[in-house]
Design a protein around this nucleic acid. Structure first.
Length: 697
DNA sequence: GGCATGTGTATTTTT
DNA sequence: TACACATGCC
């Protein structure tokens, strides 16, 4: 047995060497959760468990890869491709391609992301003539949110509307009609959305016969970040573990931050009841942060109600309290952040060891401009993603049509791009090609000729001005469809090598570029993104695999691809707090610690919402190893997009109570002669005089 | 029916 | 800002 066991603390070792039955590891921030999971995998393998009979479910693919490479090093063998590791969604995809046919699912389904789901909702919304009425009908994004909430929380539509979307309650019938149609349309076009992946996996695992077969594949199931799983995911685990009690879940109720995705903290709190005989191990020694940072973080969490009690402690000493920086306004905040970053850089802390965290993607907008101006390189996580850019979506839609010619949403995205074709003609052409194939109730769609066959054979009528571009589209689609391609799921053919998917992408790009030039003004910047897409495609020989990977595990940030990774120098990470989960930095900067930002004013309605926002701040603070800066801009301008000078004064985040502030060091980010405190201490007459001063000039 | 142009408005986090 | 929707012209 590996001597590496000696490097673990007693609680970690207890978890790693746990024998039979369910195990819940309550692991506080920075307590070596990743290490414990990796060691558990290694321990199981050393005890003779076959790697491919282990299922490791993580929150991101990166997390799985990291744990498996660590475990592999411990047991001195390559296990990365053997252990089943990945997100719930990615594993669902893999299992469904292999076993889906047993529950009536055709294995060549395509996966649509949330944007595609929204487009399909919109398609139906327009067809049903909703949104034409007097009142505003919920928008496509809202519809997807409602739908996703409904299925993931397993709640009835009226309840979801009443509790979460009261302003949409009046449109219940219309919404119900859209959802019914939406589900049917997905089945007809052989498409699964994110939620379907989970629901279908659950159905598969629950199905008599095949369910047991799927469950028996895995002797051990390990789940990371269990506090951020939802009811469907808990159901999947129950179904997967009906006959094998070996399950280990790891999580921290204090770090649950995904309730908007219907994650429920009940999963972790109720785990011992759900899985009788559960052993609970608590990890409390924090290896990450120095004591003053931990003290402040713990003080923030002190106010939370129901939780597993943990007292995080650390041996890492240090004098420096976290710094609370009072800033004049956002501009001043930017200057201060940059100044602090650069001074740490000068003292030898590389940019890569510093992180900037914030509640919402746009909270870093101004800072990004300032960083660019000062030539400080950075990567942003959680902003607009590569695959969400319109031109990338267009390219993917083209590929999807080739892959699955029944994909309505993709056709309806591409056809109106052609000059002279709008929604009406697009519908007509799709009808002529037979893109929709009505399914009998609950059945897989009937066999019908591929729309591409009809495209090749029939002379589809298109309006005069569109003839030329349509002919080009026809040519390129048929050409790509004829190219050799490795099926996903099939093992790569040994002798014959199919060309990489990049060949198809290149061909599609040639078709698409003129359209790009016509429809977008910054066409050449976007063209570079498409070249990047082509670059990624070189690594794939299965078109299906390529499309699925991009939808289930998209490149984190657009700038990820701005320069090839090997040319990267040192760079700073900007991240939403959500995307920072599991990360750590020597120095952490938290922006906008003002009420309305953290907590977001969208969330302050219910106490549950506020509780989650508190945990967000806790997650952000506990990312820091040695230095923590919290910035509080005092003044916010009202109109984000306007030039108005009107502003209001912010309150400091309600989570930074007196008790917490006592554990922070106060500093101001501006010179005293700029001080807004003068204004703060003025009385009403002074304010009026001040206004007179402004109006009088 | 397509398309350019104008108007109003919402407004977080992500697999 | 970006998106949904209305209007008016070809």
């Amino acid at each position: 047995m590996g001597s590496w066991l000696d490097d673990l603390n007693p609680a970690q070792r207890e978890a790693v060497t746990h024998g039979e039955g369910p195990l819940l590891v309550v692991a506080g921030a920075g307590t070596g959760k990743t290490r414990t999971l990796a060691c558990r995998v290694a321990w199981l393998i050393e005890r003779g468990v076959e790697p491919d009979r282990i299922l490791l479910l993580t929150f991101t693919r990166r997390a799985a890869a990291e744990m498996l490479s660590r475990a592999g090093r411990l047991v001195s063998q390559q296990i990365t491709g053997k252990v089943w590791g990945g997100t719930f969604h990615a594993v669902a995809n893999r299992l469904l391609r292999r076993y889906g046919r047993f529950i009536g699912l055709s294995p060549d389904f395509t996966v649509m992301d949330q944007g595609d789901a929204a487009d399909m909702m919109n398609l139906i919304r327009n067809e049903l003539g909703l949104g034409k009425g007097e009142r505003r009908f919920p928008r496509k994004q809202t519809l997807v949110s409602i739908y996703s909430r409904m299925v993931n929380a397993q709640e009835k539509l009226p309840d979801v509307l009443d509790t979460r979307f009261p302003w949409c309650a009046e449109d219940r019938e219309g919404i119900a009609a859209i959802f019914e149609n939406y589900t049917r349309r997905k089945r007809e076009s052989n498409v699964l959305d994110y939620d379907d992946l989970l629901l279908m996996w659950n159905a598969l695992a629950a199905a008599p016969g095949v369910g047991e077969k799927v469950a028996d594949r895995f002797e051990h199931v390990l789940v990371d970040e269990y506090q951020d799983t939802n009811a469907v995911q808990a159901g999947i685990l129950r179904n997967m573990r009906k006959r094998h009690p070996h399950i280990m879940v790891v999580g921290d109720d204090a770090q649950a931050i995904y309730s908007f995705r219907a994650a429920t903290i009940r999963n972790i709190l109720d785990f011992p009841q759900q899985f009788p005989g559960t052993k609970v191990v608590t990890l409390e020694q924090n290896y990450r942060s120095i004591r003053p940072i931990l003290a402040a973080s713990n003080a923030v969490m002190q106010q939370a109600a129901e939780r597993y009690t943990k007292d995080l402690w650390s041996e890492r000493t240090g004098e420096q309290k976290p710094v609370l920086l009072h800033c004049l306004d956002e501009e001043n905040q930017c200057q201060s952040v940059c100044g602090n970053i650069l001074s740490h850089l000068e003292s030898g802390i590389a940019l890569a060891r510093q992180g900037v965290l914030f509640r919402a993607g746009h909270h870093s907008d101004m800072l990004e401009v300032e960083l660019a101006r000062r030539n400080i390189p950075f990567h942003k996580y959680g902003g607009l993603k590569f695959v969400e850019a319109a031109h990338i979506k267009d390219m993917l839609a083209l590929l999807r049509i080739v892959e699955n010619p029944f994909d309505e949403v993709s056709w309806f995205r591409i056809l109106p791009l052609l000059q002279g074709i709008g929604p009406a003609h697009a519908r007509r052409i799709m009808d002529a090609l037979g893109v929709r194939r009505p399914a009998a109730d609950g059945e897989a769609p009937a066999e019908s000729p591929s729309p591409l066959r009809r495209l090749a054979a029939a002379d589809v009528s298109v309006p005069g001005p569109a003839k030329e571009e349509f002919a080009a589209l026809r040519r390129v689609l048929l050409e790509c469809a004829a190219m050799p391609n490795v099926e996903d799921g099939a093992d790569a053919p040994a002798g014959r090598t199919a060309p990489s998917v990049a060949v198809q992408v290149e061909r599609l790009r040639q078709f698409y570029e003129p359209i790009l030039e016509r429809t977008h003004d910054n066409a050449h910047i976007r063209a570079r993104d498409i070249e990047q897409l082509e670059h990624i495609a070189r690594g794939y020989r299965s078109r299906s695999r390529f499309i699925t990977d991009l939808t289930l595990d998209p490149p984190q940030a657009t700038s990820d691809l701005a320069q090839p990774p090997f040319l990267e120098e040192d760079y700073l990470v900007l991240s939403t707090i959500h995307s920072a989960k599991g990360c750590e930095w020597d120095v952490v900067h938290i922006l906008h610690a003002a009420d309305g930002m953290i907590p977001s004013d969208m969330a302050v309605g219910e106490t549950e919402g506020v509780d989650e926002e508190r945990r967000l701040l806790y997650v952000a603070m506990t990312r820091a190893r040695d230095r923590l800066y919290i910035y509080f801009p005092l003044r916010y301008y009202h109109h984000r997009w306007g030039h108005s000078d009107s502003h209001g004064y912010a309150q400091i985040s309600r989570f930074l109570t007196k008790a917490v502030q006592a554990l922070l060091e106060d500093r101001t980010a501006y010179r005293s002669d700029e001080s807004p405190t003068k204004l703060k201490t003025m009385n009403i007459h002074d304010v009026d005089a001040w206004i007179r001063g402004l109006t009088g000039g």
